[in-house]
């Protein structure tokens, strides 16, 4: 049953992801990405991490995708942006070379890794009712993971300052 639910959700998510890269209009790409994010959030719910699922919907589907759509609409004054590229022999040859290289490396990596059993470094613990709930998550973030948490905030600030600086062209 679980596997069936996973299979349905995961294949739908993959189809949505394909829609992102295959559709010719930017708006449709972005909307496919919304669908993909929503399906991922539902996958998180099926894995009992409701907090992560809610965050996925609020942060990615809500905030980031809306921003994406705004930017697309700001940039495209004449409706759809055409995202098609011209066909080229180099692309086919390059693609074939890439696939064969990936296969070559993949075989090298897969053979030793095939013997690795599913990770069992500790006995599976029963999942408590508070697993993945916001309180323990917040407590862990602000105690044990306080240093990385603050570092990520520095990273986000650099992202904001950097993008503003690159967006304004003139020296004040």
């Amino acid at each position: 049953m679980n596997l069936l639910v996973f299979a349905v959700l995961a294949s739908a998510a993959v189809l949505a992801a394909l829609g992102v890269i295959l559709s010719k209009s930017a708006i449709r790409s972005a909307l496919s990405l919304v669908l993909n994010f929503m399906l991922l959030a539902i996958l998180y719910f099926t894995l009992h991490s409701e907090t992560l699922g809610v965050l996925q919907v609020v942060v990615y589907t809500g905030a980031i995708m809306v921003l994406f759509l705004f930017v697309i609409m700001l940039l495209s004054t004449q409706g759809n942006i055409n995202l098609t590229e011209s066909r080229d022999v180099k692309k086919i040859v390059g693609g074939l070379a890439g696939i064969s290289l990936a296969a070559l490396i993949g075989v090298q990596i897969y053979l030793p890794l095939a013997s690795v059993p599913a990770p069992q470094f500790h006995a599976p613990q029963p999942i408590g009712p508070s697993y993945g709930a916001p309180e323990p998550l917040g407590l862990a973030l602000f105690t044990r993971y306080g240093y990385p948490f603050e570092t990520v905030s520095l990273l986000l600030m650099i992202g904001i300052v950097g993008s503003i600086m690159l967006a304004k062209r003139r020296v004040r």
Partner: peptide, 16 residues
Amino acid sequence: LMIFLGLEVLSISLYV
């Protein structure tokens, strides 16, 4: 984890 985060803080500033 910290090595990765430090690397990203270093690199993203450098990209800009």
